[in-house]
Design a protein around this nucleic acid. Structure first.
Lengths: 153, 153
DNA sequence: ATGCAAGCTCAAGTTCACTTGAGGTCAAGG
DNA sequence: CCTTGACCTCAAGTGAACTTGAGCTTGCAT
């Protein structure tokens, strides 16, 4: 195996667990940019294993492709990212998780109160219109927590 | 307004904030079952306001239509649900939220560790294969075994 | 009686994140 | 040289949860 050539898409898929079709899709979405061999086949750098692993982790945590792209955009271009580069992104992910936990904790506590009073689903209930969840407009699926608006029609 | 006749779809929409199209969709999905007027128009019972409010809350908390349907199936048929009936469902929702919070807290704490060590996205990182984010299908994670990146990059 | 908002049904469109399929190319072994 | 398997592109399909549109009917006010 010659590391100078880089990994084929199949090899990267095997190392990361990311399906080949997903790797191609993510390339089209701008999450990763392999170079090509003489015969037009994708060749991935060693550091791309880490990049793809990050994509998997981030999506498992609920980030959309656009959000992952935004995080990855913070990595340096031209040079292989260092541990410190990844650390910064890890911090951003943690903040996100903290926010999500808080957004779940509030209704949970509200629900505790509701269980006592039996008011669940009453229009006056604090749960009913906390202002941030619900309120989806536009086409397309609604996302768990966070509700990304599509765009006005 | 004659309460004997029930609410029209537009009235229910106005009271709950649920779009008319969504009410019709939810009926097709079996979440709600209004009766019909002589002229084939939907007529909703007063208690349906509560039911639709619940659907909104539950979906805001991340339940899918199928999951909402499952919760609603626990309500008594034939009789208008009491506060106690709704309370039982509230308890089930709370358990769900507790689980979700726990599922977010674990990776958050893991990430705290990763921020210290800079290992994020390393194949060996605890975050990478915590066992619950979907993992790939097929054989186990061979990337954990046997694939140590000799030097941090 | 007439007008028109509001209701009805059914089909098709929308977004996201991919997967699947068709049809063709490349690389390595025998 | 030939075959086989991995790779390529591009188009279309998937499923969730709705929305939008077309074409037609109801119901209430004037």
């Amino acid at each position: 195996m010659s590391p100078a050539q880089g990994l084929t898409i199949g090899e990267l898929s095997a190392r990361t667990g990311m399906p080949v079709s997903a790797l191609r899709f993510h390339e089209a979405e701008g999450l990763i940019a392999p170079h090509r061999s003489a015969g037009n086949q994708r060749r991935y750098a060693r550091a791309d294993v880490r990049r793809v692993s990050f994509i998997r982790i981030a999506q498992g945590l609920g980030l959309s492709v656009a959000e992952v792209r935004a995080e990855l955009a913070r990595l340096p271009q031209g040079r292989t990212p260092t541990a410190a580069d990844w650390r910064a992104i890890g911090g951003s992910l943690k903040e996100r998780l903290d926010r999500q936990i808080a957004e779940l904790t509030r209704p949970r506590d509200l629900l505790d109160g509701c269980i006592g009073c039996g008011c669940i689903s009453l229009e006056a209930c604090a749960l009913y219109n906390p202002g941030d969840f619900a309120a989806g407009k536009g086409a397309g699926p609604r996302f768990i927590l966070g509700d990304r608006p599509a765009h006005p029609t």
